[in-house]
Design a protein around this nucleic acid. Structure first.
Length: 957
DNA sequence: GAGTTTGAAACT
DNA sequence: CAGTTTCAAACTC
């Protein structure tokens, strides 16, 4: 069917305007949808494109046809096109001809694309599985080149762009593509958008738009054409004929970036869809400028390519997302990795070595072991491991958290952060980078981004980090270990010569900058800048967090390094002797408050703000994203998270079962809403705060986004139990304390994650997840939503990932993490959504918080935080746990579980599922997170924000 | 980047 | 416990 019609169309198009009418005909459009490519091919190349069967296989629907057509066309075209000149001439002529036709076609393609998108999930899997991608890729690879050549030859901008795309394959593609995209986007984007958008709107609606800009960037940046790009291009170009070529050009551009991303990351994740979609959108928009026809083609190709290859590529691009998808695996792997690492960390060297190779090279100079927990007393060396767990569900968080620990990771994280920042702005693709894979992707993406914008150093770092990550396959731990290496170095510096240390610092202006710029690293790990205390007083965030100073730290004469473990321990003990709770988590849930609101996380000591009105980071409560409590002595408290005297209406409690019961729910919700509003209104503040928290955790980006979204989140936030996060954090903390005491943390955390993923799917948590998924879907900020659900299905982890994906779609990474967290909680943690949430959010955040410095500990929980808790906190916690209001439950594991209501508030708030979920989960989850109580607040807020963002998005939609 | 502000930590 | 000093982060310019 297609062929004849297509041919006609082609002829028409080639001939001139005739084609438009034909295209206009619904039948024609339908045909085009089925196989838009073919027609073009036929007309132009006439090469016939036997059509790639593989694609069709994947796409049974119209797409298939189109794909087939394209594929077929591509091959045939390719051959015929082998003569680049001919193609060029043809292309040019076609361009003109196609131009008009393309719009229609594009619309059709759009439909196809949308269909393809729908199918993308399937396709992704299929594509990967199916030979279509490969076959096509192979087939396309050559064509792409040809096309590119042709295009290049052809003066038409489209061709140029396409040309660029091919180039990008080599590695520069991303940038080139990106540039092209932007350029074209600006120039052609408007034109192209119209058709593409229309088509999209028709089919998808407006989903693509949001993601486009960001995605594009990401794609261009993150997505490297390494693997697939060529293929994609080829595929695109191959598609032959005018449209195909044009498409290819467009696709190439788009895909170039996408593919690159995909290549970098991996086609695995369902995220590919999102990415693809985004890419598509991006391409459509950007490419749009090229030419409507081209755009249409591009779109068609893009979708196809997506389905075929693009899906994979984009998926890869979406690494972040993909990671989430893979999170299940990743988590498992990570958990295993973590476990392994954990076991290793004690030795420390083993892991560190691995990391060191890459990381050390990169940041061999790193002064300190960022995340390294304080010496045995504090928490042993293993901290690095902990981060992974946190990272599992919430890679971002974990990353952020972990980053502090490991230099390499931190950099990667930093990069990721930057990237995230961009991505957040752009898309959620980065968001997803929960798992190591994600990390890789991020790092890669970051690298990409950095290449585009960042300086060479960062690039190198990112690359190295990436390499490291790759070397250590996906084990954030490795990164952590790397940190150890640096720490030793730092030790050397600090230990003997502060001057040297300073010199070293000077040597790394970037580090200093980062440090100076913000106390927290991009990772979210804290960086100290101590000058007089030698990092041996609570003034030092690192020391206070029970973590060794890291490279990023700009401290002078630092003694908070492994070399001075003894000194550190002594000092710590001394401090503890004076104040047993000195190292205890500052944020705790108040049972009293809990009654009112599940999420009653509060600062243990309370703030004493006089001028900041608790609206700035001067306020520890605000900094921790927790509300002020009666314990605060602040004046004129306006804490967005909860004013003094009023309990934060965290959703936890309200969230569902727990809170709902209480009449306080409404109040809480209202208060929470108000808070949210406050936040929204105070975007700046929140942004800063959130940002900080974000820094700590992946969530931050999302938060930011959410923040940007602002008020919107409220509705979302409320429904979600995320708000409780702070509380959860507290609960987590308490649990953490308990857990920390128990050696389970790491294994548990990791295990929990894995289990959670599984269990969640298996257990009722699944429902819970579903809810989140639904939410995310409802949000359906973008095509991602679609992908997300699908991804979720892929695996339990995937579910979480998908959730994350979904969330990421809306808020992207951060959201994703949150979602994932939530999911994890319900499932594995059964503990409770809270626990899961907490873990994800809090665990991560805690990691992040503590993490920067403590993240390692957190990572090391077993060794680091765990030790810390045991050593310091344990006592403190033991005592403090009860002493501290926040610590509700007695037993670490039971903490959450035992106090049904109160816990429910904490946990329940996060989700009923959590409550539903078994205790096991909770217990497990708890252990890992507790250390980072401070983070909790941020997490919670981040989660909430994410939720709110999602909600907002959904509302907007 | 330097200087100021802020509030926690430390000290008395 | 209160008051003061020290300190480092947060913030501003």
């Amino acid at each position: 069917m297609d062929s004849p019609e297509i041919r006609k169309i082609k002829a028409n198009t080639t001939s001139s305007s005739d084609s438009p009418p034909v295209q206009d005909s619904p039948v024609f459009s339908y045909i085009n949808n089925l196989s838009p490519i073919q027609p073009v091919k036929a007309s132009h190349l006439a090469q016939g494109f036997p059509g790639l069967n593989s694609p069709p296989l994947v796409f049974t629907s119209p797409r298939i046809n189109s794909h087939r057509d394209t594929s077929f066309l591509k091959r045939p075209q390719y051959q015929p096109l082998s003569s680049a000149e001919k193609r060029k001439t043809q292309d040019e002529a076609k361009k003109f001809l196609d131009g008009p036709v393309d719009p229609k076609i594009t619309q059709l393609h759009m439909r196809l694309i949308t269909d393809s998108r729908d199918c993308e999930t399937k396709i992704r899997v299929e594509s990967q599985q199916c030979s279509s991608s490969e076959g096509v890729d192979e087939y396309l690879a050559d064509p792409s080149e040809v096309d590119s050549v042709d295009s290049t030859q052809s003066a038409s901008p489209c061709l140029k762009q396409s040309n660029n795309v091919p180039e990008t394959f080599t590695g520069s593609k991303e940038t080139t593509l990106y540039d092209n995209k932007h350029n074209t986007g600006t120039d052609l984007g408007t034109e192209a958008k119209a058709p593409s958008e229309q088509a999209k709107e028709d089919l998808e609606g407006k989903q693509t738009f949001d993601a486009k800009p960001v995605k594009i960037i990401e794609q261009s940046d993150g997505e490297l054409p390494y693997d697939e790009c060529p293929n994609i291009e080829s595929g695109l170009s191959v598609n032959n004929a005018y449209k195909r070529e044009y498409r290819q050009h467009l696709h190439d551009q788009d895909r170039g970036g996408k593919h690159e991303d995909d290549c970098d990351h991996t086609p695995q994740s369902p995220t590919g869809r999102l990415q693809i979609v985004q890419v598509y959108e991006n391409s459509a928009e950007n490419v749009g400028a090229i030419s409507k026809g081209m755009i249409g083609n591009m779109i068609l190709h893009a979708p196809k390519a997506r389905s075929e290859q693009g899906g994979m590529h984009r998926r890869c691009l979406q690494f972040e997302e993909a990671p989430p998808c893979a999170t299940g695996k990743r988590d498992c792997s990570l958990s295993s990795m973590q476990e392994v690492n954990y076991s290793e960390p004690p030795s420390g060297t083993g892991e560190s070595k691995l990391v060191k190779l890459s990381y050390a090279d990169l940041k061999a100079t790193s002064k300190r072991q960022m995340g390294t927990p304080l010496p045995p007393q504090f928490g042993g060396n293993s901290p690095s491991t902990v981060p992974k767990p946190s990272g599992i569900g919430l890679h971002l968080n974990s990353i952020v958290n972990a980053a502090p620990l490991v230099r390499g990771t931190t950099r990667s994280i930093k990069l990721a952060d930057h990237y995230i920042g961009v991505q957040v702005m752009k898309s959620a693709s980065v968001m997803s980078s929960h798992l190591q894979d994600n990390v890789r992707c991020r790092s890669i993406s970051l690298n990409m981004v950095e290449k585009d914008s960042a300086g060479p150093e960062d690039r190198d770092e990112s690359e190295t980090s990436i390499a490291a990550s790759s070397a250590v396959p996906q084990s954030p731990h490795t990164v952590v270990f790397e940190c150890h290496g640096p720490t030793h170095e730092k030790r050397g510096f600090d230990a003997e010569n502060v001057d040297d240390y300073e010199e070293c610092k000077q040597s790394s202006p970037k580090k200093k900058r980062k440090k100076t710029s913000s106390t927290k690293d991009s990772d979210g790990t804290k960086r100290c800048n101590c000058k007089k205390t030698k990092c041996l007083k609570l003034y030092c965030d690192c020391f206070a967090a029970g973590v060794y100073c890291a490279e990023s730290c700009a401290c002078q004469g630092c003694f908070n390094i492994t070399d001075y473990e003894d000194t550190v321990l002594e000092t710590r003990q001394h401090i503890e002797s004076r104040n047993p709770l000195a190292f205890a988590p500052k944020i705790v849930q108040h049972e009293e408050e809990i009654q009112f609101t599940p999420s009653s996380a509060r600062h243990k000591r309370g703030c004493n703000c006089k001028k900041s009105m608790c609206l700035k980071k001067y306020c520890e409560c605000y900094q921790a994203n927790v509300g002020c409590s009666s314990g605060c002595r602040c004046d004129g408290c306006k804490n967005v998270y909860g004013r003094k005297g009023e309990y934060i209406p965290i959703e936890h409690g309200v969230g569902k079962d727990n809170v709902s019961d209480k009449a306080g729910k409404e109040r809480i919700e209202s208060t929470f809403d108000e808070k949210l509003e406050m936040v929204a209104t105070k975007k700046d503040i929140l942004s800063t705060e959130l940002y900080d928290s974000h820094n700590l955790t992946p969530l931050a980006p999302s938060f930011q986004c959410s923040d940007h979204a602002n008020n919107v989140p409220k509705s979302l936030c409320l429904p979600t139990s995320y708000l409780p996060s702070p509380e959860s954090d507290l609960s987590i903390i308490s649990s953490y304390e308990k857990s920390t005491r128990s050696p389970l943390r790491h294994s548990e955390s990791s295990d929990i994650l894995l289990e959670t993923s599984k269990e969640l799917s298996d257990l009722g948590s699944y429902n819970w997840r579903v809810d989140y998924d639904n939410i995310g879907i409802a949000d359906t900020f973008s095509p991602r939503c679609d992908a997300a659900p699908t991804t979720c299905h892929i695996t339990p982890m995937s579910d979480l990932c998908s959730m994350a994906m979904v969330s990421s779609a809306s808020s992207k990474t951060s959201d994703w993490t949150n979602a994932s967290q939530v999911q994890l909680c319900p499932g594995s943690h059964g503990l409770s959504s809270d626990s899961s949430l907490h873990r994800r959010s809090s665990p991560v955040t805690p990691m992040t918080r503590l993490g920067g410095t403590k993240s390692c500990q957190g990572l090391d929980f077993e060794n680091g935080l765990y030790d810390i808790l045991q050593d310091d906190t344990p006592e403190i916690l033991k005592d403090s746990s009860t002493p501290i209001r926040s610590l509700k439950v007695s037993s670490p594991n039971k903490k959450r579980v035992s106090p049904p209501h109160s816990h429910n508030h904490e946990l329940g708030a996060s989700s009923s599922g959590a409550l539903r979920s078994g205790r096991k989960f909770i217990l497990k989850a708890v252990p890992s997170f507790p250390p980072l109580t401070p983070c909790i607040g941020s997490k919670g807020s981040s989660i909430i924000q994410n939720m709110s963002n999602l909600q907002d998005k959904g509302k907007k939609k």
